[in-house]
Structures are given as structure tokens and as C-alpha cells.
Amino acid sequence: MHIVVCIKQVPDSAQIRVHPVTNTIMRQGVPAIVNPYDLFALEEALRLKDRHGGRVTVLTMGPPQAEDALRKCLTFGADEAILVTDRAFAGADTLATSYALAAAIRNIDRDAAVDLVFTGKQTIDGDTAQVGPGIAKRLDLQLLTYVSRVEQVDIAQRRLRVQRRAEGGVQVLETRLPCLITMLEGTNEMRFASMDNMFRAARCAVRIWDREAAGISDVSKIGLKGSPTVVSKVFAPQARARRAELIEAEGDAPRDLALTLINKLFTRNPKLRDAIVAQPS
């Protein structure tokens, strides 16, 4: 079985800071990581490989340094890594991104037929959850989003059964290979990198594809040109007209502060007080 896992290198968002005066992002020193949601996809792919054999190819589109993220995936046990990188991809929105990744997967498929494509449910920097469905549509693959469990794969019959997180419940879906799965978080735990795989990752060549190597001839479909959406402005949120009313008490004793707050809160919001008092204890 040949599985392609699409990943993205993202800045560790917990460490992003905004300059307080200029409102610009301070990128210096923010470490780049593999999008955490993608690791659930990679682990699931590796488990399928453990069970059914085959190989796992990791794929990303990004700047040259995204190679580090691919190498990380190799240490976990991916067999092959491909970086699609070209200045022509700059400024891509989700529609243009899915075009480029779909083209690359078609290219991979020509080499060795692809049975399954995995992505994380979304990235932590864009948070859109749109690229997975976009790739599936472009490749005419069955789409299974928010999958919490791959129950069964029958390679001979080319059938697959999964559990999918739906609104208010879980759908058990059966579909046909090839298909694209976006994996829900918390569904598995990433294995440790083995010593063997770490050595292999260090030696293994990441394949670098520019636009042409990725099989893309139409430049109007990629990058800024291929993106229907444009960012018209970036801004910091407005402070409310009034800042918080600060609760103070003499000596700042916690008990006095608490009483002052409750007094103000309940005097001005009597309905809230009634609701709290009336709740069953």
C-alpha cells in the first residue's frame, strides 16, 4: 500500500509575539515545527504500513527550510520525502495550495500508484481545514474528514471503513480506495524516533521539486495569481471603549478583593445573581 501524508511546517504559535507598537509579528527565534495535527495523520499512516506493508511518502509545499520538517517525519519512519518549493508558489491561498499539492500527488502516483492520502484536520497557523478537501476534490478522491479511527482496510477488496466525527455523534463510513483522510487530533500517539530511522533520515535525500518538476505548467493556477482570496489588511483588535474596571481593596487581601468583586457583580447584574443562587447545589 502506498500512502502519501501531506504535512506543513508551521511556526510554534505558542511562541509568536506581536510587537506592541508596530503590530508586526516578531518572527525571530520562533522555532518551526511539524504542524502538530499532521503528526496524527503520519502516525496513522505508519500504523497502516506496519499492518499491511507498503510505503509512506511525506509531502510538503513550502520554503527550502521546510526540508527540516520532512526530515523529522523520516525519523519517525516515513520512507520518502518530497519538498515542493518554488518562488512561483509564494502567496498561495488554500485553493492555489491544493492545486500544487494535487499536481505533486499526481506526479508521485505516476511513479507508484497512491492508495491513500492523509492530512491533519487543519494547521495551527492557518486553521482553515480547507486544503485536504481541496486536494480530494482535485484528484477526485473520496473525502473523509475528521476521522477518529481507521477501523478496517481491505486491500484486496480496496475497501476502507472509518469512524468520522460528525455533529453530535460519530459516523461509521465505508468507502473505496483511493481516498483522502483528514485525521482528528488525539486519536493516536506518535511513536518515538528509532535510532535506525534517525540515521536513515540523516542520510536520506529529500527530493526537491520546483514547479516544473512537480508537473505544473499553468502558472495562473498557483501562488498569488491562482489565489481568489487576498488579504486586504492585518490589524490588532480594538480595545473596548473602556478598559476593565479594576477591583481594589485595602491591603489587597484576597478575601476583600473577592467580596468587593461579588458585591459589584451582583448589584449590577441581579439576574445573574438570581440564576446562580437558584441553581441546584
Partner: peptide, 23 residues
């Protein structure tokens, strides 16, 4: 932007080749 809406929106926008802004 639910599991249903996001699943559907991404597929429809790609089919129509139009822009989609999430969340």
C-alpha cells in the same frame, strides 16, 4: 464552521474554483 460545514465548504469552493475564508 462545523465538521459538516467545513467538509462541504472546502469541496464546493474547490469545485467552483472560488475563494473561501474559514472561521
Amino acid at each position: 464552521a462545523t465538521t459538516q460545514g467545513r467538509d462541504l465548504a472546502g469541496s464546493v469552493a474547490t469545485t467552483l474554483k472560488t475563494g473561501l475564508t474559514a472561521d
